[in-house]
Computed example of a mutant assay.
Amino acid sequence: MNQWLSWLSVEYADQIEMTLRLFGATVAGMIIGINRDIHNKPIGMRTLGLVALGSAIVILSGSVYEGLHFGQDAVSRVVQGILTGLGFLGAGSILRGKDGTEVQGLTTASTVWIAAALGVTAGLGAWFITIAGTLVTLLLLTYGTRLERRLIRIFGKSNSTEADQALED
């Protein structure tokens, strides 16, 4: 059995690595999405998992011909295309109120963009960046509103009712 597993890991090392990268990207996006689900936001775990997975797939598709070593130019162009395209998806979650003054959904749009970035890092095999980026994103989504409210109160920029309304997203 060990001999067979050893042969399998040597023979299909690239495919195993790509599969791990795809799963890593998906999990990172899903973790961010769970936070959005908990807060009843329109984009959740499945959507952000798919965004991250899609980004990783696009990055890895360039590696089919060159092994798992990427040319800097090609990666740069692919990343630019991913992030530009995701801007449109994120823009779809931004809504303006009927009076034209209230904008909602910016944080949700940002989570779409960050899920794509996490997919890119997982696709490139940058595991530390993927994990650290996921953790920092979760910290910001979980505690960012409280911190922002506290800073607004400390610096007295506006009254707390206006600040609370502005931080609904």
Score class of each variant (00 low, 15 high):
1 M>C: 12
1 M>A: 14
1 M>S: 13
2 N>M: 12
3 Q>S: 14
6 S>C: 06
7 W>N: 13
7 W>C: 06
8 L>R: 02
8 L>M: 10
9 S>A: 10
9 S>L: 07
10 V>K: 13
11 E>C: 11
12 Y>R: 09
14 D>F: 08
15 Q>N: 14
20 L>I: 14
25 A>P: 06
26 T>P: 08
26 T>V: 11
29 G>C: 10
30 M>H: 09
31 I>K: 04
31 I>E: 00
32 I>A: 04
32 I>N: 00
32 I>D: 00
33 G>H: 11
35 N>K: 13
38 I>A: 13
38 I>N: 12
38 I>H: 10
39 H>V: 12
40 N>C: 12
40 N>D: 14
41 K>G: 08
45 M>N: 06
46 R>M: 09
48 L>G: 02
50 L>A: 14
51 V>E: 00
52 A>Y: 01
53 L>R: 00
54 G>E: 02
55 S>F: 04
55 S>Q: 04
56 A>Y: 03
58 V>C: 11
58 V>A: 12
60 L>H: 03
63 S>E: 08
63 S>N: 14
65 Y>W: 12
65 Y>T: 13
69 H>L: 11
73 D>K: 09
73 D>I: 09
74 A>H: 11
75 V>Q: 03
77 R>N: 08
79 V>Q: 01
82 I>E: 00
82 I>F: 01
83 L>R: 00
83 L>C: 06
84 T>Y: 02
85 G>Q: 03
85 G>E: 05
86 L>H: 01
86 L>G: 03
87 G>M: 07
88 F>V: 02
89 L>A: 08
90 G>D: 02
91 A>I: 03
92 G>C: 09
92 G>T: 07
92 G>N: 06
94 I>L: 04
94 I>S: 03
95 L>A: 06
98 K>S: 13
98 K>D: 13
101 T>H: 10
104 Q>G: 09
105 G>A: 12
108 T>G: 07
109 A>T: 11
109 A>I: 09
112 V>C: 08
113 W>P: 00
114 I>E: 01
116 A>E: 04
117 A>I: 10
117 A>C: 15
118 L>P: 00
118 L>N: 01
120 V>P: 00
123 G>W: 00
123 G>R: 05
125 G>K: 01
125 G>E: 01
126 A>G: 05
127 W>G: 01
128 F>L: 07
129 I>D: 05
129 I>K: 03
133 G>M: 02
133 G>L: 05
134 T>I: 05
134 T>P: 01
134 T>Y: 02
135 L>M: 13
140 L>T: 13
141 L>I: 03
141 L>Y: 00
141 L>S: 05
141 L>H: 06
143 Y>E: 06
144 G>P: 07
145 T>P: 04
147 L>N: 08
151 L>G: 13
151 L>K: 10
151 L>A: 14
152 I>G: 02
152 I>Y: 05
154 I>C: 10
154 I>D: 01
156 G>D: 11
158 S>N: 15
159 N>C: 13
159 N>R: 15
160 S>I: 14
163 A>S: 15
164 D>S: 15
165 Q>C: 09
166 A>P: 11
168 E>S: 15
169 D>Y: 07
169 D>S: 15
